[in-house]
Write a protein that binds this DNA or RNA. Structure first.
Length: 550
RNA sequence: GCGCCAGUAGCUCAGUAGGAUAGAGCAUUAGCCUUCUAAGCUGAGGGUCAGGGGUUCGAAUCCCUUCUGGCGUGCCA
């Protein structure tokens, strides 16, 4: 909002003076507040193309910019930075717009309704969701919310891998547990089978519903039946977990359904037509090395079955057919070797592979009492998303999961997430919201709250802390755009902590409700009322609650 | 071996297209509640930005190289 305004003003000044400005200039908030509210490197960047020294160009620009009322001060510093101090009147104007926007503040048309496919979680339907899926859910959903806010048209999709080996193994695992219930003694539960407790529960449920009837079915039919039963149950279980986490999907796409629709054969024929396949050792290969992969990949195995890659590629092509211009996949840490072949296939089929964007989430390590909790899938010792939710709750879980950059490992400290004091950032930011609520309540009781807010009140806000709070909130809309573009939801938590911190300090230093100064009180109430709203909007984007009292 | 990601304060991490004196929280430590929520605030100490070279007015940021950690490198999904 403000940055844009400044770079416009600089641009106009350059035009007026008749200087070239081809290169993009930067408007930023300096680290040191003594340098002003904003600064630009325009003079340094543009000096060369105008045959001037940075200082000389800066001087002319400053002379021009000083004519504007929006700036209280414009000066030159260091090697040629131009520093701006914004006039309070300009802040009041912008703050009033913020106030009028209420809970719609931050919304924009920036994304021009571009259709974005956001695929995330897409966990195997062979067990409960684990904590990496939980991270993906929090990340994907928050990114979705931010993108939507700034005017994109994103869709959340979950791809269900309900075909292939792992599903057969699932069905076999259920069958073994079912036999156990009926008294069969198993020597040892097979190594590759699914060991988790949930398989036992599935078998128990099936048994109570259908009893021995299952064993009367012919082998093939029985396995299909077990498969279908287990997949449905697990799908429901996963959907349930996600719902508790506040994450809903707009669509679920089944691999099995895709296969039945014949897209697998289609993809194979497309690749063959593009002359990108060959036969070797009874298998059909895709020459992905021609398109940047480090080895060729098998499409159809020598036993005639198909690899995971083919339906997945087909699935991605259906996204394009559905009109999405950007396909964002959120992947777990163990899939990065998979990207080159997917991109290679895009290139082979003459699609623009830059439409495909993969975000990798690194692994999540759980810590308790400083010790890392070891998890083992094979032994069935995994901490599930539900376990985590039961222990720390939705707010803390979602907050911690989005608080880190995607490609950084995330250390999840269970004790910290449970702490109810300033050590825990979730409580710190929520406390600020609750505090404001409580002040507003007191003000209302004391009859200090005006019937309607009045713009003139703003001129009472003259303390540096007050202007700084306004400035911080005015950064919000531009930050949302940047979060959407860079796919960096973690910056929401940083923003919330900064704004909450500024408020806590302001609260400690100044008395807000003071019956001796009615107008000042009302001005401050107007300020904190908007802080409360901006915090609430931020919380909504993060998927955490905005408590009215704590 | 090769490829991807990372290495910033004791710990967990920021550092937004290369910008001015590298930041925050926690931990450590010294303080602040007859006053709107102390789940809060104020102060102090703490750094060879993994090491080394280069690019330029300027590098934590870009390039090269070495070291360390994680992951990948299936006719698994």
């Amino acid at each position: 909002m403000i940055r844009q305004f400044i770079s416009q003003q600089v641009g106009q000044a350059l035009d007026k003076l008749g200087y070239l400005h081809v290169k993009d200039i930067l408007v930023e908030v300096p680290n040191n507040p003594e340098f002003g509210d904003f600064s630009t490197n325009a003079a340094m960047i543009l000096a060369k193309e105008n045959n001037l020294t940075p200082k000389a160009l800066a001087e002319e620009l400053v002379k021009e910019l000083k004519k504007l009322k929006s700036f209280k001060k414009v000066d030159i510093a260091g090697p040629g930075f131009i520093n701006f101090v914004i006039a309070p009147s300009q802040y009041y104007e912008l703050f009033w717009e913020l106030h009028l926007a209420e809970m719609n503040y931050g919304q924009s048309e920036y994304g021009k309704s571009e259709r974005i496919m956001l695929e995330f979680v897409s966990a195997n339907p062979t067990g409960p969701l684990n904590i990496v899926s939980a991270r993906a859910a929090a990340f994907g959903d928050t990114l979705y919310r931010v993108m939507k806010t700034v005017g994109f048209d994103p869709v959340r999709e979950f791809y269900i891998n309900d075909a292939g080996n792992q599903v057969d193994i699932l069905a076999e695992s259920v069958e073994l547990r079912l036999r156990e219930i009926h008294g069969d003694k198993l020597e040892e539960f097979p190594f590759e089978a699914y060991h988790g407790e949930y398989v036992r529960h599935l078998a128990q449920r099936l048994n109570s519903q259908e009893g021995v009837r299952v064993f009367m079915m012919p082998e093939k039919e029985r396995m299909e039946h077990l498969k279908e039963f287990a997949l449905n149950e697990i799908h429901e279980m996963q959907q349930n977990s996600l719902e508790k986490f506040g994450v809903t999907f707009d669509s679920w796409v089944s691999e099995k359904t895709l296969r039945m629709e014949g897209v697998v054969e289609e993809v194979l024929s497309y690749l063959a037509e593009a002359d990108c396949t060959y036969e070797k050792e009874d298998a059909i290969w895709f020459c992905s090395t021609k398109f940047g992969d480090d080895k060729d990949r098998v499409l159809m195995k020598s036993d005639g079955s198909i690899t995971y890659f083919v339906p997945d590629l087909a699935y991605h092509l259906t996204k394009l057919q559905r009109g999405f211009t950007k396909l964002i996949d959120v992947f777990g840490p163990d899939h990065h070797g998979y990207v080159p072949r997917l991109k290679a296939a895009f290139k082979a089929l003459k699609y623009d592979d830059s439409m495909l964007e993969i975000i990798f989430l690194q692994q999540v390590n759980l810590f308790e009492s400083g010790e890392r909790i070891k998890m083992s899938k094979r032994a069935g010792k995994i901490v599930t998303m539900d376990d985590l939710l039961n222990v720390v709750g939705k707010d803390a879980a979602r907050y911690f999961f989005i608080a880190r950059k995607a490609n950084a490992h995330l250390n999840f400290d269970l004790e910290l997430a449970l702490k109810k004091d300033s050590e825990n950032p979730v409580y710190y930011v929520q406390y600020a919201h609750a505090r404001i609520y409580s002040i507003l309540k007191k003000a209302k009781k004391d009859k200090m709250l005006p019937k309607a807010w009045n713009k003139e009140l703003l001129t009472k806000l003259v303390k540096p802390e007050e202007l700084a709070l306004i400035k911080k909130m005015l950064e919000f809309p531009e930050m949302l755009i940047s979060i959407a573009e860079q796919r960096e939801p973690y910056r929401l938590t940083a923003f919330a902590e900064e704004l909450a911190g500024m408020f806590h300090r302001y609260y400690a230093k100044f008395q807000i409700v003071n019956d001796k100064h009615k107008e000042l009180t009302q001005a401050r109430l107007l300020l904190i009322d908007n802080i409360k709203n901006v915090l609430a909007i931020t919380f909504e984007l993060m998927g955490i609650s905005a408590p009215e009292k704590m």
